[in-house]
């Protein structure tokens, strides 16, 4: 095939494909790699509700459960994993999976219980003044430790 014809075809296909998401709804019809790029376009109130996990020691001390205990190192992947579990009514199963990962983490050796909660926080109050909002418990599970009763 003539090199100029190849160039014309590849160029037209690349441009039309890349621009085609403009015909889709930006928020609902995102895809990959042909994206609508909605990432900073969502309207977000400062007060937000979302799900996450908390670890507790026997003494009732609170420990942070990190994204790698939920899915992988990505914060957003963890957030989506919680949202998916809530949608599928599979929060207790997710709690057990997180507890198993916590059990394998020496840094969380004192954690005996994992809770998945739905927290509502004001972003400014939390970040600037350290004020935590209300949290509602969705599931609780024990961390499986060898020898524990």
């Amino acid at each position: 095939m003539h090199p100029r014809l190849v160039g014309a075809v590849v160029s037209v296909v690349a441009i039309v494909a890349t621009a085609s998401p403009v015909l889709r709804r930006p928020a609902r019809d995102d895809s990959f790699p042909l994206s609508t790029y909605p990432m900073f376009a969502f309207s977000r109130p400062l007060k937000q509700t979302f799900e996450y996990a908390i670890g507790y020691t026997d003494a009732g001390e609170r420990r942070t459960i990190r994204p790698r205990h939920v899915a992988n190192a990505e914060v957003m992947q963890a957030i989506m994993t919680f949202a998916s579990a809530v949608r599928r009514r599979a929060v207790p199963e997710l709690c057990d999976r997180i507890a198993a990962r916590v059990a394998a983490d020496p840094a969380l050796a004192d954690v005996t219980t994992v809770q998945i909660v739905r927290g509502t926080h004001d972003a400014l109050a939390f970040l600037v003044h350290g004020e935590r909002g209300p949290e509602r418990q969705l599931a609780t599970c024990a961390v499986p430790r060898p020898g524990a009763r």
Partner: peptide
């Protein structure tokens, strides 16, 4: 999604606040 009102910056500020909040809650 937001119209030209997006330029007033409130939505961008809230997005940045929201994103940092989620990170902080997750221990990042």
């Amino acid at each position: 999604m937001a119209g030209w009102a997006w330029i007033d910056g409130e939505q961008l500020r809230n997005q940045i606040a929201f994103d940092n909040l989620r990170r902080a809650v997750m221990g990042v």
